[in-house]
């Protein structure tokens, strides 16, 4: 028996919004410790990893490890049937071929129950080694989304250059060039407005805008985003999922032949 109840059901809807443009289907691995998802996008350029800790749920039970392969478009359609303040419960029997989504209104006066067929998907996990990143940039997630959106108008790629002076996002194309520089903030009223750079050595990497823009669909999950960079390894873009976990996007950099 698997059962996971989330009073802040809206977080699950936001997680789906953050992955459904990148992935059409994926497996949710349910274990005693929580729920995890790891999947590559169809082009195998980026990798998404979602981690939802068991203790973050209001009720969590997983008697046996369970892999639930889901069509994420269908899951998203079902979650759209819930209200933003609904309590969401996911439930499945051991060896079941369906999963149930139960939506309860906060007053308990309305309870909806949706069942979805599960899929058998090929599991294709990549091992992500522990990496000491040369630069870790923490910045407001809305600012990052804005920069990616604005610079996409100039070219297909964004160059991210991190140095002790700050971080510079650049793009170039037919209409001209664009540069946005952010310095580390000295003092802010709200922690979520801070730009904090932890740099061991300067790093400059180039990434496809298209993917960065898809990652920014996670912006409603968290006021801050962290960008971890290291020479010639994938960028990690990470957003917290409330108090219950995090979503990480790994994006291969563009490198010379």
């Amino acid at each position: 028996m698997f059962e996971a109840r989330l009073v802040h059901g809206n977080l699950l809807k936001k997680v789906l919004d953050a992955i459904k443009d990148l992935l059409t289907e994926a497996s949710w691995d349910c274990a005693d410790s929580g729920i995890q998802l790891q999947a590559m996008d169809n082009s195998h350029v980026s990798l998404v990893s979602v981690n939802l800790r068991a203790e973050g749920f209001d009720k969590y039970r997983c008697d046996r490890n369970l892999i639930m392969g889901m069509d994420l478009t269908s899951m998203s359609k079902i979650l759209k049937c819930s209200a933003s303040d609904d309590i969401i419960t996911m439930k499945a029997q051991d060896n079941a071929d369906t999963v149930s989504f139960i939506f309860e209104s906060p007053s308990q006066e309305k309870v909806s129950d949706y069942q979805m067929k599960l899929m058998n998907l090929d599991q294709d996990h990549l091992g992500i080694p522990e990496t000491e990143y040369a630069c870790v940039i923490k910045m407001p997630s809305g600012e990052f989304a804005r920069i990616c959106r604005d610079l996409s108008n100039f070219g297909e790629n964004i160059v991210i250059a991190c140095s002790k002076e700050g971080v510079k996002f650049s793009a170039a194309g037919d209409i001209g060039t664009a540069n946005v520089k952010l310095a580390q903030t000295s003092s802010v009223d709200k922690e979520e407005d801070a730009v904090v750079i932890d740099m061991q050595e300067p790093v400059t990497l180039t990434f496809a805008c298209r993917y960065l823009n898809m990652f920014t669909k996670a912006t409603p999950l968290s006021p801050q985003v962290s960008l971890s960079m290291h020479p010639d390894v994938p960028l990690v873009v990470e957003y917290a999922i409330g108090e219950i976990g995090q979503i990480q996007y790994f994006l291969a950099p563009k490198i010379g032949d």
Binding site: M40, S43, H44, V45, S46, L47, D124, H125, L126, G127, I128, P129, N157, T206, A208, V233, P234, F250, L251, A252, P253, K254, I255, G256, D257
Partner: peptide
């Protein structure tokens, strides 16, 4: 501009 390689080039399959 650089070339886009797949993410598997950086991480091994488990």
């Amino acid at each position: 501009e650089g070339r886009q390689h797949p993410i598997e080039m950086f991480y091994a399959r488990e």
